[in-house]
Design a protein around this nucleic acid. Structure first.
Lengths: 400, 400
DNA sequence: TGCCTTTGTCAAGTATCTGGACGAACTCCC
DNA sequence: GGGAGTTCGTCCAGATACTTGACAAAGGCA
């Protein structure tokens, strides 16, 4: 029963200002006249907005560009270091934090192991990380972005539940804002990563699904250039959809979730089984040597052409592809990007995903879908955490 | 590489005007002051907009309401018959057309069988239907809305392909607009139906998936109060996602699509098989008598407690539920509405759908999801075709 | 009856986009 | 080298639409 909100002049201005900023961001160096052509705004308006951006230190003139038959244009560029963002990735075993500029260029990274840490103690670790990075860049600090597993109410910045940290309904954004005095954005890690791909991979898609396949499986759904959260902030939580009728128990309590068959855990479980059955195989010897298999071991076995490993990896990929076929059917997105540790496994896995997704989705739609690995632009969760801040504060991924 | 478009004063005005109109639509009779409170607009702005609405004949004052301690408010209401819409449902066997008012109240309905009709001939039938309904209501005609199966480019009103009518890349909106001189909207039938449920069922959901389960299966995806089309206008085309590994051939050419196991065709195919195997069963006798089974026969057998029929219907429902679990995982919508001939089968089917969807979706998400049959508000495709026009012309389902 | 509240409108003010005009700066061609 | 034409950036007047404050009309309450 919520009623849509009214439109105001400020919103109009904010939208158009974001448009100009984005033109500089994506197409700079660029002249005012070109920004006007690109955005449809008048030169007058663009000039006005640019004036504000220059006053704010966000943009600068860098001299004349080539003439096209008239007065040479004054080229403008965004000042990448004009603002900074502190981005955090609250991983399962380690909290990582980075100080980044407007382009997602990392200035400094620090991290703390958090095994055994939980509750208020974990919040204190977050504070420490921020304090350490904030020293010396308080003036330019645009905001703090947090990427974390679990269900996150992005509107209020409340973490609904993060099992391993024993956080429940923690208003992390409020807590951090109160202590550090800058805007704070909190987002689910997979969703943040999706925004990072949109903002930093040099290629804009209005609609995009980015699937993180690691120990867990989660997707970020970007529709119309904006993150889609769903009614309960659970959009993209595909890891716990049941896909295997006689599957194993999942950490969520049910059986046969996608995670139990397609995550890194699933692959390692199965390769370990195989290694135990065949102690003389390469994987068997690797297991005996180290006591535990890792995805690197799987990669090595895969590269060596081990058939059992290949079958396991392909099976995992096919399960994911099956899920993606459903995603394509429901959303008809033109681009699905895969990332996370499992996505690093290479073409054996990727081809399995693609093949299964294409075989199962309506040809008319699937023909256009690009399923690809994320470009190696860095830690996507960290980048995403900063992308969320950039989007919220500067409107760097405006839709429409 | 398309750049978002600029914001203007006119858009601001249009948005706010739509807000006022919607307040009248959803909450009327209502005073200007209450509209202001509801929308957040100032009384001044609301008064201004209402003035225009009254001038346009869209609203009227209907006297004073009860005072709450001050001057009694002047109540306003929408004039339901102020405008009319011609809605068309281009069904597989019959084209149906209706003249409706702003509330979706049907003034007149006509139809033409179109078996064997295709190409330009079919377009002529559309023209005829419109001409017949338009006589006498030219002045109040707001627009024409068309609901049709197949892939439709809703932005341009072009039908990409409608197999049975032999239409390919037909710019139907342009054709109808040229001939009849009013705005035309064309939409996929399932998507149109979703908008009808949103607009006419008396209950607003920002996010909603409406699945039409009949001879075909398709969904309309409503996100943020607006229809989501997908990059290739194929969002919601879940009927041709492969769900059955050793399934039968589908009319789309592949094997095991959702339609081959969950549509009315699938149910009738299976019950007919069963009837042939057991000629003495109720269904067997029914088949022998009429030569062909219908969903009504299935309904009768179901009501009579026939176990074979029940199993077939439940199996069909479970396949759909499985797909819905995926939808819930991807979108986390709070409400999924089912309609179409199969959805009329009753609780045996609905319970199977619900049970399977809930069992397979993440508990946290699935717990909140309501899966329900559409309220019996009329022909959803016709209503939807008109809803698309009302949305486009009056902004009756504004988001944000 | 007098005071308070609420409604609807008016007038002045403000923010922001629009469109025309103009000087500055550059190219091209004679 | 100079004039014509083009393009850029800005200025200014004008238009649009929201905001704010004020006020009369209309009602309740004591």
């Amino acid at each position: 029963m919520t009623f849509p909100s009214k439109a105001t002049h400020q919103q109009t201005r904010a939208h158009n200002a974001a448009l100009v900023l984005r033109a500089l961001y994506d197409f700079g160096p660029i002249s005012r006249a070109d920004v006007a052509r690109l955005s449809g705004l008048t030169r007058t308006t663009v000039g006005d907005v640019v004036g504000v951006l220059i006053d704010d230190g966000l943009a600068r003139e860098i001299g004349r560009g080539p003439s096209t038959g008239g007065k040479a244009p004054i080229l403008l560029e965004l000042i990448d270091g004009a603002r900074h963002v502190i981005a955090l990735d609250l991983g399962e075993f380690v909290f990582r934090a980075a100080l980044m500029d407007l382009r997602g260029q990392v200035q400094r990274t620090i991290e703390r192991p958090v095994t055994g840490v939980s509750g208020d103690e974990a919040v204190d670790v977050v504070h420490e990380l921020i304090d350490e990075l904030a020293t010396g860049s308080r003036e330019t600090l645009l905001g703090i972005g947090v990427g974390t597993p679990g269900i996150v109410d992005a509107a209020t910045g409340t973490i609904r539940s993060a099992v391993n940290l024993n956080w429940q309904d923690l208003p992390l954004a409020d807590i951090l804002r109160a202590r550090h005095g800058v805007p704070v954005q909190v987002a689910n890690d997979s969703r943040a990563a999706a925004l990072a791909i949109e903002l930093f991979s040099g290629r804009r898609s209005t609609n995009l699904v980015a699937v993180k396949v690691g120990r867990g499986i989660g997707a970020g759904v970007l529709l119309g250039g904006e993150l889609f959260h769903g009614d309960g902030f659970g959009a993209g939580e595909i890891g716990h959809v049941v896909v295997d009728d006689d599957g194993a128990e999942c950490r969520c309590g049910r059986f046969g979730c996608l995670e139990t068959v397609a995550s890194s855990r699933a692959i390692l479980l199965r390769t370990t089984e195989a290694a135990n059955e065949q102690p003389d195989s390469p994987l068997g010897r690797r297991l005996a040597a180290s006591g535990e298999l890792t995805l690197d071991d799987v990669q090595v076995a895969l590269d060596a052409g081990d058939e059992t490993t290949r079958r396991i990896v392909v099976a995992a990929g096919r399960f994911l592809g099956r899920m993606l076929a459903g995603v394509i059917g429901v959303l008809d997105v033109e681009r699905i990007v895969l990332h996370g540790s499992v996505a690093e496994l290479g073409d054996v896995w990727l081809d399995a995903v693609r093949d299964e997704a294409h075989r199962r989705a309506l040809r008319l739609l699937a023909g256009d879908v690009v399923i690809e690995r994320a470009a190696p632009i860095g830690d996507l969760v960290l980048l995403g955490a900063s992308a969320v801040v950039l989007t919220a504060e500067l409107g760097l991924s405006v839709g429409r």
